[in-house]
Design a protein around this nucleic acid. Structure first.
Length: 255
DNA sequence: ATGGTTGTCCCACAA
């Protein structure tokens, strides 16, 4: 089965690209970020017509997460116990034997900004939530827009980027604390080269010049590691008309 | 350092 994550940067604008990609890639599960839609405006019928059930936690203008699946989604969580947060950034659901947690990690704006402090606090509390999820659900998948480059291979120009936002040591340490729970960056189980990216800035023809970052990740629990058979980044939708600045990332699981 | 682009919403703000 194929599992995927895609930051669509407005589902209202990107619905045609989404339905096209679903028809092409046919994932069993797809986690979306930055839907930017109130729940009342979520395109339930359009996605049902495409063959998908949906759960979502949205808000107007900013943030918003959703999970699409061919099978039933149960045990849905939209908030974590120790984080009283109006921003809609986390969504968990059980699909068959899998527990899926969709994350839209805080961007943080700049190192030292108040949004950066919020990011690090958010990540610490999410880590605690994931530790508890992993106890209850060994078959855990944590995927989404992490807004952190795991290491320098995931940055087009690591020297120029330095320790700026998305690459600062505290952010990378926060990600390491999460993977340290026993969650593997599935892409790196199959590909160790630098230069594979999931996001390119809209400006400066960054996609054409492959000036990107790999910030969209699919983490899997130890119990799922032997079931993983392939991981990829599908750059095709980034070439389409009116693309998101992110492109889908995928993982094949033999379960 | 600044600016470049896109999305949302009405004018900056977020990314």
């Amino acid at each position: 089965m194929k599992i995927a994550s895609w930051n669509v940067n407005s589902l209202k604008v990107r619905l045609p690209q989404l339905t096209q990609w679903l028809a092409d890639a046919r994932p069993e599960v797809l986690a979306l970020q930055e839907t930017k839609l109130e729940d009342a405006k979520f395109p339930v019928d359009e996605l049902a017509a495409a063959g998908y059930r949906v759960v979502y936690s949205g808000q107007k203008t900013y943030n918003g997460v959703a999970i699409l699946a061919r099978d039933e989604l149960t045990d849905v969580v939209t908030d974590i116990p120790d984080l009283d947060d109006p921003q809609r950034r986390i969504l968990a659901a059980t699909i068959g034997h899998l527990r899926v947690v969709d994350l839209y990690v805080v961007n943080g704006k700049a190192v030292g900004d108040e949004k950066y402090a919020y990011k690090l606090d958010w990540l610490a509390k999410v880590r605690e939530f994931l530790a508890r999820e992993l106890e209850r659900h060994p078959n855990l998948v944590v995927l989404g827009d992490f807004n952190i480059c795991p290491d320098d291979r995931d940055v087009y120009d690591p020297v120029a980027w330095g320790e700026d936002i998305l690459c600062s040591p505290p952010e990378r340490a926060a990600l390491k604390a999460i993977t340290g729970l026993g969650l593997h960056d599935s892409f790196r189980l199959f590909q160790s080269d630098a230069g594979h990216f999931s996001w390119w800035d809209y400006r400066q023809a960054a996609f054409r010049r492959n000036m990107g970052l790999r910030i969209d990740l699919i983490l899997i629990g130890e119990a799922l590691k032997s079931a993983a058979t392939a991981a990829a980044i599908d750059r095709e939708p980034r070439r389409w008309e009116r693309p998101s600045d992110h492109t889908p990332v995928t993982l094949e699981l033999d379960i």
